[in-house]
Every structure is written in C-alpha cells, then in structure tokens.
C-alpha cells in the first residue's frame, strides 16, 4: 500500500548536537507503525519535525504525496495529520468534554462537511471510556486519562495519520490492554497510526512494522519478531554488559 506519510533523510541539529541523523521512514494506512528507542534517542524530535513544530536542518516530510517540509503546522493538520504530546498539552482552562469538543469546532473551521462537535465529542468520550470524567477539569484527572483526552482531541479532526507520543505511560496494565485494542481498531478503520511508546509490550502487540532509533540514528526496522531478535536493539536497550 502507498504510504500516507514519509520522511526522507531528516536531520536535526541543536547547536553542535545531532539529535536526529538522516532518518527515513514510511507510515502506511491501515496499520500501526512503531517508533521505539531509549530515552533521548530523538523520537519526539522526529515527531516535532513531522508536525512542523520544528524545522529540520535537512530532509523532507511528505504527507499524502505532497512535500510539506515548508508548511506551518496548521496546514499539515489540515492535510490530515494529528498528534498527541509526550509532555501533555491539554487546554487546562477547559473541561475534558470541552477539550475534545473544541477540537471538533476547530476542525469545523477548515473542513467540510461540518461535524456536530457536541455529538461527536460524546461519541469519542464514550469510545475512550472517559464518560465518568467528562465534566472534570483536565488538570484534576490522572495522567493516563489525560493522555486519552489528548487522543480523543486528535481523533476529532478525523486524521489520516495519527502520531501518538507515549500514549500508554501513566495507564495501568488493564487500561493499556484496552488501549492496544483501540489502536488496532483505529488502524483497521484505515487510519495510519505512528506510535512512540516505551511499553515495548504494547508496541509488540499492536505494531505491524517497527523503527528503532538510537541516539538519532535508525538502527533497525522490520516486523516485531525481527526487532525482538535484533542484537543491535537489545544492546541499545539493555546496554552492553560489563559482567
């Protein structure tokens, strides 16, 4: 299948540091693509480049066949890109319901046909199991739930590509399992999901294809079983034993 999102040779330098070094990847519709790697490997940086919050020093971002490297974030979002944030970016002055609803209303500013933001928000709240918290302020709810609110918010724009930055951290085991099911269902409906996650269990359970970053460099890519047995990945994760 044709990729809906491609990055080609993305490089990001901060001062003298290379945070991301020549990374290329493809995200295809209908499946979950994983992006894993130790802390500081450059995963969030790559997401920021894809969404346009950060301009790369080199490389191209292609969304739906169009080069969007020079486009501002809002245009990429209108091109079907949505994301969640590792460091939560919720609208703290709004309730859970309004956080999700306002995303639909913002979508209605640029997309036709319009959606009924209230009804759609109710549906998403139901889908994500946020019903009990819907009228609470977002700063009062636990992190795991807050991450679901962010996911709900991004779903309201009905994206073609969904970038999830550590959506499971802060959720317990059972919640994570539910979450995995949800991701698989989303992908089955045709959304291209790009997942950054530390919970390798979740990644292995959901992803059809995985990229592994280590200090900015792509060290492996492939199906979950290949990744599991890849020596470079094991070294990156566990470090080389001195004993």
């Amino acid at each position: 299948m044709d990729p809906v999102l491609e990055v080609h040779g993305i490089t990001v330098r901060f001062g003298g540091n290379v945070a991301v070094d020549g990374v290329s990847a493809r995200v295809e519709p209908g499946r979950v693509t994983g992006l894993i790697g130790p802390n500081g490997a450059g995963k969030t940086t790559l997401f920021n480049v894809v969404t346009g919050l950060l301009t790369p020093s080199a490389g191209r971002v292609v969304l739906g066949g169009r080069d969007v490297t020079r486009q501002p974030p809002f245009k990429r979002a209108r091109g079907g890109l949505a994301r969640t944030f590792q460091r939560l970016e919720l609208f703290t002055s709004l309730s859970v319901r309004d956080n999700i609803r306002v995303a639909g209303e913002i979508r209605n500013r640029w997309a036709r046909p319009r959606i009924d933001a209230v009804a759609e928000a109710d549906r998403v709240i139901e889908l994500l199991g946020l019903g009990a918290l819907a009228d609470r302020g977002v700063s009062e709810i636990p992190t795991g739930m807050a991450r679901r609110v962010e996911l709900g918010r991004s779903l309201m724009t009905q994206p073609k590509v969904l970038l999830l930055d550590e959506p499971a951290s802060g959720q317990d085991e059972q919640e994570t399992d539910e979450f995995a099911e949800l991701l698989v269902r989303l992908a089955a409906n045709g959304t291209a999901v790009f997942l950054v996650e530390h919970d390798v269990h979740l990644v292995m359970a959901t992803c059809a294809y995985i990229y592994v970053l280590d200090f900015g460099v792509l060290i492996a890519e492939g199906a979950p079983d290949d990744i599991r047995s890849n020596q470079a990945v094991l070294d990156a994760y566990l470090g080389e034993s001195l004993t």
Binding site: L53, P72, P73, F85, L94, W110, R153
Partner: peptide, 15 residues
C-alpha cells in the same frame, strides 16, 4: 481559551 492554553496543540489541530 484553547489557544491561550497551548498554541502548539491548537496548531496541530489545524488552527
């Protein structure tokens, strides 16, 4: 209100 709280998140929603 959303823009006041997080311009970055708003932009990624297409605002």
């Amino acid at each position: 209100a959303a823009m006041k709280d997080s311009p970055a998140a708003c932009a990624t929603l297409g605002l």
